[in-house]
């Protein structure tokens, strides 16, 4: 019942009441209710990929009857994995969430559900990856990349070598962070991933503020070097 819980939390109690009421209402709503239940049970199944396909299909069908509801479902379903994916690139919880939110914002504004040719999943992942790359370029190379249009995004990033390149990029970043000396890594993650201030880190680790700054600049230097060489 994990997913159902999400919906309820999201839309507040009135939606929950609505859900209850809906059971005896129109076929459409009945159908969506059933699908919801199916999707639920799907989570328990061994073959999780089937569930994922079902979920995508289900969200699409909801979009056809109620765009806003479809959007809510889409958001709740993909927000967490997308954040998880984004953070592999940017290594900041806050930035990752911002990037994913931006992608969803753009999705709504462009009414992407109407014109995208791929699955929502592929579109969202590609958009997030693209934004992450733009962010990294901006942070580490002071390059300002232009936002890609949806068509370029799809045509470019669906190419196998591009996909692999993106995979290798986050894997490289993981390796760099993983390869940092323990204390260095600790400071870096506290600052960047958890968004703690230098002073907070210094207090917690009982080191000087200067030392925190040195750790951070060393870690960032490593990343800059690694990212700058290839991109």
């Amino acid at each position: 019942m994990l997913f159902l819980n999400f919906v309820i939390v999201l839309n507040g109690t009135h939606k929950f009441v609505e859900l209850k009421k809906m059971q005896n209402k129109t076929l459409d709503q009945d159908y969506s209710n059933k699908s919801l239940m199916q999707a639920e049970s799907g989570l328990d199944r061994e073959e999780a990929s089937d569930t994922a396909i079902d979920k995508e299909f289900f969200i699409r069908s909801v979009f056809q009857t109620d765009v806003e509801k479809g959007y809510d479902l889409l958001f709740c379903h993909y927000y967490t994995p997308l954040c998880s994916h984004a953070v592999r690139y940017v290594y900041s919880r806050e930035v990752a969430e911002d990037i994913v939110s931006e992608v969803f914002l753009a999705f709504w504004k462009k009414a992407a559900h109407i014109h995208i040719t791929t699955s929502f999943r592929a579109y969202l992942f590609m958009s997030v990856r693209n934004k992450c790359l733009t962010y990294l370029r901006w942070e580490f190379k002071n390059e300002i990349a232009e936002e890609l249009s949806d068509t370029t995004l799809v045509s470019m990033h669906m190419q196998p070598d591009k996909l692999v390149e993106f995979d290798e990029l986050y894997q490289r970043i993981v390796k760099i962070v993983d390869g940092l000396p323990p204390q260095n890594q600790k400071v870096f993650l506290m600052s960047r991933f958890n968004g703690m201030s230098y002073q907070q880190i210094a207090d917690k680790l009982q080191i000087s503020r200067k030392a925190v700054e040195a750790h951070i600049s060393k870690a960032l230097g490593e990343l800059r070097r690694a990212l700058g060489s290839n991109h």
Binding site: F6, L10, F75, Y79, C83, S84, R93, E97
Partner: peptide, 12 residues
């Protein structure tokens, strides 16, 4: 392999 647990409700 979730890296962290964000709050989708709040984000939405």
């Amino acid at each position: 392999h979730i890296q962290f647990q964000p709050d989708p409700a709040k984000a939405l």
